[in-house]
Structures are given as C-alpha cells and as structure tokens.
Amino acid sequence: MTDMMEVAAIDGSGSFPVYRALPAGTPKAAIIVIQEIFGVNAGIRKKADDWAALGYLALAPDMFWRFAPGFDVDPDVPEQMAHAFEIRTKFNVDKGIQDVEAVIRAARALMTGGKVGIVGFCMGGRVSYLAATRTDIDASVGFYGAGIDAALGESHAIAKPLLLHFADQDHFIGAEALSAIHAALDPNAHVTIEEYPGVDHGFADTFGKRRSGEAASLAEARTRDFFAEHLA
C-alpha cells in the first residue's frame, strides 16, 4: 500500500510531503529514499515500492518542498532535464539534512523503534553521505553522489556503515574527485566503495535511457545485501 504523509520540519518552517510505501506485514526496518534533482518522480516512487515489497517501510521525502513543491520530471526529456538543473540550484543541503533528520524521527515513531537506513541518488547520494556524517542513521547508501568530495572534511564523523557506488566514466564526478574520496574514506572500516567500469552517471536509474542493466543490477543486489545485514 502507498500513500502520502506529512512530516514537520525541524526548523519550524512548516511540513513537507513524504511518499510512503508500506510492506504487507510488520516492517523489518525503514529505508528513506532520497531523490535525484528530478523530484519524487516515477522512478523514485518505484524504488520505494520495491523496498516495501522486500518488507521495509519506505519513505521518499520531497526534498524540494521549500521552493518547488511536488517537482516531478523525466530526465529523458531534454527540456525537463534542463529545468531540473535550474531548479536544483535553489536546494539548501543543510536544510535538506535537517529534513532527513525529521524523516528519521518519523520513521522510528511509525515503527515504535527499529533501524533506519537511507539510500540516495546523485544529489541524494551526497545527502546520504551527509546523513552518515551528521545524523544517527543506522546505515547509508549513496549512488554516484556528486559533491561528496567537497564534504570530505566531515568524514571523521562516519561511525556506522556507509556504502558508496560510483561509475568510473561519470562525467559529473571526475577521476580527481573519486581519488580524493578514496583517499579520505578508504581508511574508515565503516565505508565500502564500489566502482562500476564502463558506465556513466545515472546508471542505476529505475528505468529510462540512463540505466545500465548489468551494473545497475549488481549495485542494487549489493545494496539489498548491505541493508539486510546492517538493518537487521
């Protein structure tokens, strides 16, 4: 079953919508799904639905609610892609992490306890990384998180499991950025970094032109195993 719920912002500025996908029985844990710059679109909703089918409470918050509520575009449509790149400049990542903290609290309240994980894509991949450095999230996964290299000064705070997936042909995350990420994070036993050869940014899109089936399937399987281990 799916529905929408409202979560109050920590800063008191209002409340924001969260797409909720419920499992058939008692949730084994909760997973927060963080959008790309394209909003809580069909692909993100499907990812939440898939987690619910595996027995998790899945929550996908509208990260753009402060300036573009309900934003929902298709990255395969060039005009919509361009609009998303324009809109995303308004996103305040610090406020975004506060919103994630609010959703973590809401998830724990809905389950009356239990562990909470987060998985994000592109912009959401950076949000997932920052959730690992700034919140008490139990496990975090980031897919091709653009901008993580600019936030490595926070990496000392990572104390719970973090899995990062990167494309080795990513035109948004170059070799220098990826090298810096490895240098900062490889010494941390809580962090696992996986690279996927021959694919570009967006390779794990739910569907559409960007998806690279073999790499996406491998990354998704690793993510399922990661959460099964660390949210148990």
Rank of each mutant, 00 (worst) to 15 (best):
T26H: 04
V7Q: 05
R88H: 12
D74H: 02
I34F: 12
E194F: 00
S179L: 05
I10H: 06
G55E: 11
P75L: 10
I158K: 05
D138K: 07
G113K: 10
A68S: 13
G145S: 08
D136W: 03
I118T: 13
G174S: 07
V141H: 12
F172K: 10
G213I: 10
S212L: 03
Q35G: 06
A107W: 03
F172L: 15
L110F: 00
H201G: 07
H156P: 00
L163V: 10
H201D: 07
I31C: 06
L162K: 01
E229L: 15
V103H: 09
V127K: 01
P75Y: 05
A139R: 10
M111H: 04
I31M: 06
G39L: 05
L218W: 02
G142E: 11
F16D: 05
A150D: 13
D225G: 14
D149L: 01
V191I: 11
V40C: 08
T89Y: 02
W65V: 04
V93W: 06
Y56T: 03
R126T: 06
E6D: 14
M81I: 00
V191T: 09
F166P: 07
A232I: 03
H83F: 00
V18M: 03
L57G: 09
M1P: 07
D149W: 00
A58R: 09
G147Q: 07
I97L: 12
V18T: 05
A52L: 12
D168Q: 11
S128C: 08
E86Y: 00
D50W: 00
F166A: 03
I181M: 08
P197R: 06
A8N: 14
T133V: 06
D49L: 09
R105I: 12
